[in-house]
Nucleic acid binder design. Structure first.
Lengths: 128, 128
DNA sequence: TATAGCGGTATACAATAGTATACCGGTATC
DNA sequence: GATACCGGTATACTATTGTATACCGCTATA
């Protein structure tokens, strides 16, 4: 079987497109990346996440956590303490998202370098 | 200098976060991925892109092309034919986005496989 | 008994994103 | 002269997202 790479997209365009859409979906909205980001450093409780992400409201956090759970990216565990303790953790699949984030990081850094090099002469001619 | 990887994010958290945000931004909205996707196969004219992306309106296409151009992801070239011919093409940096898309594709495919394996026993017990 | 923390939910609203539809000037074709 | 293609823009609207604010039952602590 051919490797699943963009060059082979003609072989099964629909499932490739769906796969990419799934990934985009995992990061969709203002808060998914911050949430995934904090969970990449380990399991956390609701209020912990809330404290680590400035300005997020409990409504949004609750909503996005549900969404991520439904999509199999995080798991929610309730411990029968009293009152209950709830822990959120990336699933195996969720942890793999770090590869995508890594690729995003690399692109973002190189893109900023490239744009900087393009802007430099312009900035210099303005200040000269 | 340390490699720019997520494990080193403590070293310059702000610029790492900005870099990731830039990448997310490149794909933000309903139409950016389809547009980038078609341009990964080569330069195209406005109406060509419009025809290749079902249901996109010229308003959205125009808006998103401007946005991508401003962010240094595509370039717009006007040829002095009459009437004018306009060509859109990924910049060098834009072409590098294929690496990110590739990572998204891989994650999406493995995630679907993983979820399928999880759902299978459930589906089987329902039909049994 | 009052206060604070936990893990959220409810309601109402504001802002952003996307759609529908029609139209523009220029040119080549029938 | 009418129609169609090019590369878009204008206006008005709808739908989706996100925010603000207040509140819930429960429990531990002062």
């Amino acid at each position: 079987m051919a490797a699943a790479t963009l060059k082979n997209i003609q072989k099964c365009p629909t499932s490739y497109v769906l796969a990419i859409q799934d990934t985009l979906n995992a990061f969709q909205g203002k808060w998914k990346m911050p949430i995934i980001g904090t969970l990449l450093f380990g399991k956390k409780r609701f209020k912990e996440i809330e404290r680590e992400i400035p300005k997020i409201t409990p409504r949004m956090l609750s909503q996005e956590l549900k969404d991520l759970e439904m999509n199999g990216i995080i798991s929610r565990t309730v411990y029968a303490t009293s009152p209950v303790t709830v822990e959120y953790e990336l699933t195996k699949s969720g942890k793999q998202l770090s590869k995508v984030v890594e690729a995003m990081l690399e692109w973002g850094l190189q893109h900023r370098r490239a744009n900087m090099l393009e802007l430099l002469p312009i900035l210099q001619s303005k200040t000269a």
